[in-house]
């Protein structure tokens, strides 16, 4: 299977998504540490979809980034969008009173990080990890 497409719409879908992502990664990513970090990324992005956009999806895909083999984790939603991307990426910034470490953590774990968000239209976050 080249990719895994996961629809996120409630808490249970996040939990089952994690289990399915773990299975999918099991075939593609060998390193146990890396797998655990990637699942954390999945969980953070999924959690944000539920918290801020209600529904959306996450795509995992084996692909190439600038010619190198890597895994892409991409989250996409049609929620409210992020008002201030720079702030959202800084540590301890949260509009929901939680730790505010999700996005900066994801950025640190992954090798490439692109965020595309328009107010009122939604948010797409594309991240890559070289394998």
């Amino acid at each position: 299977m080249q990719n895994f497409n996961c629809y996120i719409y409630d808490d249970v879908s996040v939990s089952t998504g994690i289990i399915e992502a773990r299975e999918w990664l099991g075939e593609s990513v060998v390193d146990h540490h890396v797998k655990s970090l990637l699942l954390t990324v999945f969980a953070e992005l999924a959690q944000n979809i539920i918290k801020y956009a209600n529904r959306g999806k996450i795509l995992l895909e084996m692909t190439k980034f600038e010619g190198e083999e890597c895994l892409m984790i991409c989250s996409k939603d049609h929620g409210p969008g992020i008002e201030d991307i720079e702030k959202a990426l800084s540590e301890n910034f949260s509009t929901s009173g939680t730790l505010g470490l999700g996005l900066p953590g994801v950025k640190r774990i992954m090798d490439e990080f692109q965020i595309d968000s328009k107010l009122g239209e939604g948010t797409t976050i594309r991240t890559f990890k070289y394998l």
């Binding site: 540490h33 655990s36 970090l37 470490l101 953590g105 774990i109």
Partner: peptide
């Protein structure tokens, strides 16, 4: 575990 420890550090918790 090492994996959990690394994750916690990466997340900056």
């Amino acid at each position: 575990s090492p994996a959990i420890a690394q994750t916690i550090v990466e997340l900056g918790i």
